[in-house]
């Protein structure tokens, strides 16, 4: 009986230790924005409003993607004081792909690979101070990459 109690205690401690960082991550991760199926709701979740179109955001992505599971995307912002770059795919089941936040000498340029369910615009929104800037690129997708 004592041994069983001890085991129970060990399990409880382990479970607590595992749960704590998970809760901390859950508190930071923007659930509302990431679980929105609509682009405008996802933007609202990130408190984005009144974004203006900018030619100082460069998006390099293929015009046509054979397989939507892997679409390579390069984004560069030449907007001064860029703090964050948010990536959206308008027609994905959930529109927000990721939010990239820069500090201490990190340059506002990233390369990553994303999933696309169907032909859609990739919409980029850059945060600089209190202002938001946007640019889009359409990618034709031949095979659904969202599973």
């Amino acid at each position: 009986m004592q041994r069983r109690n001890f085991l129970g205690l060990i399990i409880a401690i382990t479970a607590t230790a595992l749960l704590l960082p998970l809760r901390a991550v859950a508190a930071v991760w923007n659930k509302a924005a990431f679980e929105s199926s609509k682009l405008d709701e996802a933007e609202k979740g990130l408190a984005i409003n009144g974004e203006t179109t900018s030619k100082d955001i460069e998006i390099i992505a293929p015009d046509r993607a054979e397989n939507g599971a892997i679409v390579q995307l390069e984004i560069t912002s030449r907007i001064p004081n860029t703090e964050a770059i948010a990536v959206f795919v308008e027609k994905n089941p959930t529109a927000l792909i990721g939010n990239f936040m820069f500090s201490n000498g990190a340059l506002p340029q990233i390369v990553t690979r994303i999933k696309m369910a169907e032909t859609s615009d990739i919409k980029i929104i850059v945060k600089a101070g209190d202002r938001y800037f946007t640019a889009s690129k359409n990618v034709v997708v031949l095979e659904n990459g969202c599973g």
Binding site: V87, T94, I110, I114
Partner: peptide, 11 residues
């Protein structure tokens, strides 16, 4: 440096 939040749309 760079801090990221990702959803299920990253490959």
């Amino acid at each position: 440096l760079l801090e990221m939040q990702w959803g299920t749309g990253i490959s």
